[in-house]
Design a protein around this nucleic acid. Structure first.
Lengths: 275, 275
DNA sequence: GTGGAGATGATTGAATTTGATTGAATATAA
DNA sequence: TTATATTCAATCAAATTCAATCATCTCCAC
């Protein structure tokens, strides 16, 4: 049997409860109580505590696994998705940068990948609001400037009105932006108003705005747009349908498709990725 | 076996505790006490010490393995030099903070140690120019704001004129400062002009300025001072000579000495004073 | 030997956790 | 719909665990 005489610590119990939940997506309070040899009152308290920490979903009579309702996947997860495509996009964007440029790096995993490639260039001035990018560039010889602002945990970026004053003081040659969604009508959009605000301020201070967005972003619209009169100079993506491409080029937006043959080295991508 | 007559050294015990933890992710205080043949009081002391060094997680009734909550490797936490003096200073400074305070955290290892202790407080607004502190506070529930500025690699802080505009927009209740040196004539001093500049701007925007400086800093003067009309409200240190102390107190600067047994008293004192 | 610093174990009151109980809220059946 | 059976959250007392204090002990320098 499971109930081995000795008392269980809270941490231990939570571990067991998560295991029970993992085995069958739903468990009842009484089942947990019996399995762990503890009163139902304690089980309910544990479940509530775990629910408050977002570990599980509470349902009448028991608990259920937390379904991924998060509108924005965690940073680490995003980095796994589309890594090959994002790498190609970042590589294509890299060729737009020259020595001695002043560039801005936005948040997002694609831009972060670009940040990792900057060692090959010399004497850049890099402005960023992404702590991940900053962490990546800490040891680099380039000049690194962070915008201030309120820290947004989910994207690990500095956003909001407090980022505005510092952005007013600088001008960058090229701003490399990430986004949650992009449409030809609304431009970039994201899930957080503060983040959209900062993106807008950045783009106002950039001579050239370059968007790095894989195909999953194109045609999608998220919660907040970056304002009605959006502006974009270059879109770097991995695939785009001809209609959208034409629309963009009519607006004088250069489209760079970093496809498989564009980098030539990365061949034989999984066929299912072409979905 | 376990209880081999001779007494165990602290280091030896910690090794055994880590082994127990490694075997089963959770162990009780009583289990450790029994396994190592020592009183539960000593076990608790060991566990606390190890917890403070980040070796394990303390839970009611025992200890649990430290789960790596953040998927990202933190900035670079290599210089994890644990110093008892700095720990005491930070603990004494902690008792100056209350729930809902707005505080500033400067760079430096002592202030960083304070940042690690902020979990015990609620609903803080934390402004900082230290990327180490920011990394430490990334997962905390507090509101976190970073000043912008140029990244200075050696101190991992954001400094220089670009940090000024954002600082003009905020006011903090208490600013916890670090320093390279401090004298009663020149105040704080550091090695970098940009860093001194930012320190000065911060102190202008703080209702109360609190300096955390161990005794090695007192009486030392570094390259750049933070300006002729420096201002300080509280100095927290681990030891100070009477003459300096008197000079400071004549200037209405409160001196807190976090001696060996002062930590407990300081905490207990505030706990009651908070009533 | 003397004295001080540090470590240990016992003790104490405070804080936390637990299980039982209660009435209210919710789900199920008729 | 109403009636019945579960489940829930709040409360309380008992048990456990905690942190702080104190007396003792060891070790080391003087």
């Amino acid at each position: 049997m499971s109930g081995n005489g000795h008392k269980l610590l809270t941490a231990e119990r939570e571990q067991r409860i998560m295991q029970l939940l993992h085995d069958s997506d739903v468990v009842t309070v009484s089942a947990i109580s019996e399995a762990l040899g503890m009163s139902e009152a304690t089980v309910r308290r544990d479940l509530q505590a775990m629910h408050e920490r977002g570990l599980l979903e509470r349902v009448h009579g028991g608990a259920a696994v937390k379904q991924e309702s998060s509108p924005e996947p965690l940073f680490s997860d995003k980095e796994e998705q589309f890594s090959t495509e994002k790498q190609r996009i970042a590589a294509a964007a890299l060729s737009l940068i020259h020595d001695h440029d002043t560039i801005f790096l936005d948040g997002g995993s694609t831009v972060l990948m670009l940040a990792r490639m900057l060692d090959s260039l010399k004497a850049l001035t890099i402005v960023t609001n992404s702590l991940m990018a900053a962490a990546q560039l800490m040891e680099s010889p380039h000049r690194l400037i962070l915008t201030g602002g309120e820290f947004r945990a989910i994207s690990r970026t500095l956003v909001g009105p407090l980022s505005s004053p510092i952005l007013k003081n600088i001008v960058v040659d090229k701003a490399f932006m990430g986004t949650m969604g992009f449409t030809t009508t609304d431009g970039m959009s994201t899930t957080d108003a503060n983040e959209a605000y900062t993106k807008t301020r950045v783009m106002e201070r950039a001579r050239q705005v370059i968007l790095l967005a894989d195909r999953s972003k194109l045609g999608c619209s998220s919660f907040v747009t970056c304002g009605p009169d959006w502006h974009l100079d270059v879109l770097v993506t991995d695939a785009i349908d001809p209609k959208t491409r034409q629309e963009l080029e009519e607006r004088d937006i250069r489209v760079i498709v970093a496809g498989k043959n564009a980098t030539a080295k990365a061949n034989a991508g999984t066929a299912r990725a072409d979905q």
